[in-house]
């Protein structure tokens, strides 16, 4: 075997470009092409994660429409404001941390350390996603809670102009319970779905990197 590898080495040193040799202009043309490295992908996906949820506020219906009125009627407007402020402080912290980690990534590092840094950067993103999803779920649960403690919840819905007094108390309780159940179920389902998509995306993107990193790490144990 040793001989064969040495034979290969001898042959290898004589290897010329098997590929058509690239000219000065060919190479020059590549300099300003877009990179599609994993790091670039992580960066782009993180940017989308940060921006997309905020598009929701661009829809007029959210800030002047029924949604806001409903929150107000439910007495949720203030707690939501406080929650939003906390949310943005934490988001800013994540952006800062992400930027720091991202800056540390250098192609001039050795392979193992480069991989470790990319994985660390991704962990920041992962934590951000956990945080966002928790907040997302909490919003739903807050609505459920307020429906629960607000007796006049049904009034806020303005049920198709019907006189509330016509509906029996038992029926009202049922509607209230059903609403809570629907909001809770929708919250859990949407959180799980978004979470699943995120982790599938990252899992696929970093499958090879993780495998290579494990391989290098296993050597050092």
């Amino acid at each position: 075997m040793m001989d064969e590898l040495e034979l290969l080495k001898k042959d290898w040193q004589k290897q010329d470009v098997v590929h058509p040799k690239l000219s000065y202009n060919d190479i020059h043309g590549m300099l300003w092409k877009k990179s599609f490295s994993i790091v670039k992908w992580i960066f782009l996906i993180s940017l989308i994660e940060l921006i997309v949820p905020h598009f929701i506020y661009l829809f007029p219906s959210v800030w002047q429409g029924d949604g806001n009125v409903l929150y107000k009627n439910l007495g949720l407007a203030n707690p939501l404001l406080v929650l939003s402020v906390i949310y943005y402080v934490v988001v800013l912290y994540f952006i800062f941390q992400f930027y720091q980690r991202y800056k540390e990534i250098s192609v001039l590092d050795n392979a193992r350390s480069l991989m470790a840094k990319i994985i660390r950067t991704r962990k920041t993103v992962k934590n951000y996603i956990f945080f966002s999803l928790t907040m997302f779920l909490m919003m739903f649960m807050a609505v459920v809670f307020y429906i629960y403690i607000n007796d006049d919840f049904i009034n806020t819905l303005e049920l198709s102009g019907k006189d509330i007094s016509e509906i029996s108390k038992e029926k009202l309780e049922n509607i209230k319970f059903l609403s809570m159940l629907i909001v809770a179920a929708a919250g859990v389902a949407m959180t799980l779905l978004i979470g699943f998509i995120y982790f599938l995306l990252y899992g696929l993107l970093l499958k090879r990197l993780n495998r290579n990193y494990q391989e290098l790490k296993r050597l050092e144990v």
Partner: peptide
């Protein structure tokens, strides 16, 4: 830089079909 790119940073831009004749460019034996 070349090895780091190949084993860490590079991600195929589109799904490539693995053909049986995957040695279209192969090392030329000399």
């Amino acid at each position: 830089v070349a090895l780091n790119t190949a084993i860490t940073l590079y991600r195929k831009s589109k799904k490539r079909v693995k053909t049986l004749h995957d040695d279209t460019i192969f090392f030329k034996i000399k």
